[in-house]
C-alpha cells in the first residue's frame, strides 16, 4: 500500500483538502478501515464486558423496578444508536447524492443493517422490559410506534437498495428515502414530550441533572461507548465489502484479491 506524499506547500486549508481527498479515495479508506475496524471491535468487546459486569453485578437494584431495570443497559444504548445511526446514514447518503461521492454512498449503505439491528434490539428489549413493569409487551403510543416506523424505514431502505440493480441509482434513490425519513428522528425523541405516552420521558438527554443514580449511570455510559465502538467496527467492515465489490476492476482491488 503506497501512500503518496505530495510535495506541496502545506497551508492548513490545503492540508484539510488533502485529508478530505485522501479519505474520499476508496483504496485509502479500505486500508484505513482494515486497520481500525479490528481495534474498534476489540474496544467494543472490552467495554461490553465491563458494562455487563458493572450493570449486572455491581449496580444496585432499582427502588421500584427491582432487577428488571437492568434491561436499561442494553435498551437505551440500542435505542440511541438506532436514531444516531439513521442520522449518520441519511447525512452520508445526502452527501453522496449532492457531491457525488461514492464512498459516502458506501458508508450510508453500510450503516443501514447496523441501525436496523439496534432498532430491532431496542424494540425487543423494550417489550421485555415493558411486560414486568408496565404490564404489557407493547402499546401503540407515540414513542413505541415511531420507533417501529424507524425499523420499517431501515428495512425499506435496504429493500430499495436490493431492488435496484445499479449501485449508483440504488444509492441515490435510497438517499432520497433516507432523507425523507429523517423527520422521524425528532418525532421519536420528542414523542414523550409532545404527547401523552406510556413510555417515560428522558433521563439523560433532558436539560438538568440526569435523574439516575451514579452507580447505574456508570454502566450505562460504558455501554454507550461499547455500542459506538461496535457500530464503527461493523460499519467499517461493511464499507470494505462494498468497496471491494464496487471497485473490483481497479488495480488496488486486484492486488488485494490476488496478492
Amino acid at each position: 500500500m503506497a501512500m503518496r506524499k505530495p510535495a506541496q506547500p502545506t497551508t492548513s486549508r490545503s492540508r484539510a483538502w488533502r485529508w478530505f481527498h485522501r479519505f474520499g479515495s476508496p483504496a485509502y479508506f479500505y486500508f484505513f478501515a482494515g486497520r481500525w475496524a479490528p481495534r474498534f471491535g476489540h474496544l467494543a468487546v472490552a467495554f461490553f464486558l465491563a458494562g455487563l459486569y458493572f450493570g449486572l453485578v455491581v449496580a444496585p437494584p432499582d427502588y421500584q423496578m427491582g432487577d428488571s431495570y437492568r434491561i436499561i443497559f442494553i435498551h437505551v444504548p440500542s435505542a440511541w444508536m438506532s436514531m444516531f445511526i439513521y442520522v449518520v446514514m441519511a447525512v452520508s447518503a445526502g452527501i453522496g447524492l449532492v457531491w457525488r461521492i461514492k464512498l459516502s454512498h458506501a458508508v450510508a449503505r453500510s450503516c443501514a443493517p447496523v441501525g436496523a439491528a439496534f432498532t430491532f434490539c431496542a424494540l425487543v428489549t423494550g417489550a421485555l422490559w415493558g411486560k414486568p413493569t408496565w404490564g404489557t409487551y407493547w402499546i401503540w403510543d407515540a414513542r413505541l410506534t415511531s420507533e417501529l416506523v424507524l425499523l420499517f424505514l431501515y428495512v425499506g431502505y435496504m429493500a430499495l437498495l436490493a431492488a435496484l440493480d445499479d449501485w449508483k441509482t440504488g444509492s441515490r434513490a435510497g438517499a432520497v428515502l433516507a432523507l425523507v425519513g429523517l423527520v422521524n428522528i425528532p418525532i421519536i425523541h420528542y414523542s414523550v414530550e409532545w404527547w401523552n405516552t406510556l413510555h417515560q420521558g428522558a433521563t439523560i438527554t433532558k436539560l438538568g441533572r440526569p435523574s439516575i443514580d451514579i452507580r447505574m449511570l456508570v454502566p450505562l455510559l460504558i455501554m454507550f461507548a461499547a455500542v459506538n465502538f461496535y457500530f464503527l467496527a461493523a460499519m467499517l467492515n461493511r464499507v470494505r465489502c462494498e468497496l471491494l465489490d464496487q471497485e473490483r476492476r481497479t488495480r488496488w482491488v486486484q492486488e488485494v484479491v490476488n496478492g
Binding site: Y63, W134, G135, K206, S211
Partner: peptide, 28 residues
Amino acid sequence: DQVLAKHDENYMPPEVSEALKAANRQPY
C-alpha cells in the same frame, strides 16, 4: 379492562429512595 403502570424517568437504589423519603422530601 386493562390497568398499566407508568414509571417515571428516575432510577435509584432503595436506600437512596428511603433516604429521600426520610428527609421528608418527595423524591421526584
